[in-house]
Amino acid sequence: MMSLPCPHCGPRDETEFGYGGQAGVAYPARPGDLDDRAWAEYLFVRDNPRGWSTERWVHRAGCRQWFVLRRHTVTHEIESPA
């Protein structure tokens, strides 16, 4: 059970959180302008790093805020949020 650092509530057990995948994938400003390939890329393709991952989490059973953290996908080391 990981202990994740909620920036608002402090460290809490993993079961309180929801995972939101790779961070920094913005919803396209004008989806209608994207061709099918680019749209599919937005919809379906995310990094799958074996190593450090910058990713979104939400403190679902706590403050319900979304935040970004860096986690190592092999060792589960967490880099404290800046």
Binding site: M1, E14, G18, P49, R50, T73, T75, H76
Partner: peptide, 13 residues
């Protein structure tokens, strides 16, 4: 598990 992970050990919960 919901998150991307390559650690080959389980989580107890």
């Amino acid at each position: 598990d919901p998150y991307v992970g390559y650690g080959q050990r389980g989580s107890i919960h």
